[in-house]
Simulated scan of single mutants.
Amino acid sequence: MKNGKTCFLIDDDIDDQEIFALVLKSVNPSIACVVANDGIEAVSKLTKEETFNPDYIFLDLNMPRMDGKECLQEIKKIDRLKETPVIIYSTSSEQKDIIETRNLGASDYLEKQSSVAELKKRLAHFFK
């Protein structure tokens, strides 16, 4: 199963999940997109399934139960994922969110785009 790369999207918005997965497939069809609906589900999957080692993690900030910042801190505690890039994927363009998530270990910050074309351009940057 591990010939292509795996992208793990953690986002509670179903529409955002579908758009992200479609755009990712158009950018690079060999990348599998696995989705968790919130931080608790994501951390549970990452801690219980030790063979699940995504190549990239895209993480929404505003989610119920466990927000993106808490989730990021939990992900960073998992040894096998220490080198996995975690990209914040959020509607927030607040400078404090960008700075805070970088300080917590996020490798990049991607603001959710209103246009599919713009999202495609941004994802192409990550998955060229």
Results as ranks from 00 to 15, higher is better:
75 I>R: 07
64 P>R: 07
54 P>C: 06
5 K>V: 06
103 N>W: 13
113 Q>G: 04
18 E>K: 07
11 D>F: 00
14 I>H: 08
105 G>P: 13
23 V>H: 01
79 D>G: 08
24 L>D: 06
49 E>F: 09
91 T>Q: 00
125 H>P: 12
116 V>W: 13
33 C>M: 00
24 L>C: 07
108 D>R: 09
105 G>I: 10
116 V>L: 12
18 E>G: 04
118 E>R: 13
62 N>T: 09
78 I>N: 09
36 A>Y: 04
51 T>F: 05
51 T>S: 07
54 P>F: 04
50 E>Q: 07
62 N>K: 08
17 Q>W: 03
48 K>R: 11
55 D>M: 02
113 Q>C: 11
127 F>N: 13
86 V>P: 09
115 S>M: 14
105 G>E: 14
114 S>G: 12
5 K>Q: 14
123 L>A: 08
69 K>T: 08
97 D>H: 09
58 F>G: 02
57 I>E: 07
3 N>L: 12
2 K>E: 14
77 K>F: 08
72 L>H: 10
21 A>Q: 04
74 E>D: 10
117 A>M: 15
89 Y>V: 04
32 A>E: 13
94 E>Y: 11
44 S>K: 10
67 D>I: 02
123 L>P: 07
96 K>R: 14
17 Q>K: 02
128 K>C: 15
36 A>H: 01
66 M>P: 08
65 R>M: 11
19 I>S: 00
119 L>Q: 10
4 G>T: 08
2 K>V: 12
33 C>V: 03
25 K>Q: 07
18 E>Q: 05
68 G>R: 05
